[in-house]
């Protein structure tokens, strides 16, 4: 099934991988829960201690496993629990962006966001926005055969 036809199938929902750092964005996802900020059930969170741990390989693996979008998240710049892990994330993210461009994948499928542990509403809105964007795009072209 092509991306467009799949997207037209009623009720198709993207599958999103969100890498979160333990101290900020994972906490933001927790705060979203505590504040009951509702969001579409599309994201699966993978916790790492710091966004600096996120290896570009992880991101590609996620796409190859059928993620329709991959989110790289961490503390706001300056707030990283490990001094500057997220500065390194930024650099790696630039590289990732360029590869995604080369591969011809829509840029919405890879997103970076800094979310603090208290920004529950921001986390929920982020998931909602990405879900909406990806719904319009349909399934990722990198999705392996037979994966919903």
């Amino acid at each position: 099934m092509s991306a467009e036809t799949a997207a037209k199938v009623n009720g198709w929902e993207p599958k999103i991988v969100a890498f979160c750092c333990n101290w900020c964005s994972y906490g933001g996802a927790d705060s979203a829960g505590m504040g009951r900020f509702q969001q579409p059930p599309t994201a699966r969170i993978i916790r790492v201690m710091c966004s600096g741990r996120i290896d570009p390989l992880h991101v590609f693996n996620a796409f190859l496993e059928g993620a329709d979008a991959v989110l790289v998240t961490g503390c706001h710049i300056g707030d990283c629990h490990y001094v500057n892990g997220n500065d390194k994330t930024k650099i790696k993210y630039k590289f990732l962006e360029s590869v995604v461009r080369e591969l011809g994948i829509e840029k919405e499928r890879l997103q970076l966001n800094w979310i603090s542990a208290s920004e529950g509403e921001k986390f929920a809105n982020f998931i909602r926005d990405v879900t909406e964007q990806i719904k319009k795009l349909g399934p990722s072209p990198l999705k392996p055969e037979g994966v919903a």
Binding site: M49, G52, R53, D55, N61, G85
Partner: peptide, 26 residues
């Protein structure tokens, strides 16, 4: 401190933070 930044940057994958090893994340 176990942040794992080194692991994500090691060109040969020689470093792995315990508890968040490359194999585990994969």
């Amino acid at each position: 401190k176990g942040c794992g930044s080194c692991a994500a940057s090691c060109p040969v994958g020689a470093i792995s933070p315990r508890g968040f090893t490359s194999n585990q994340i994969k």
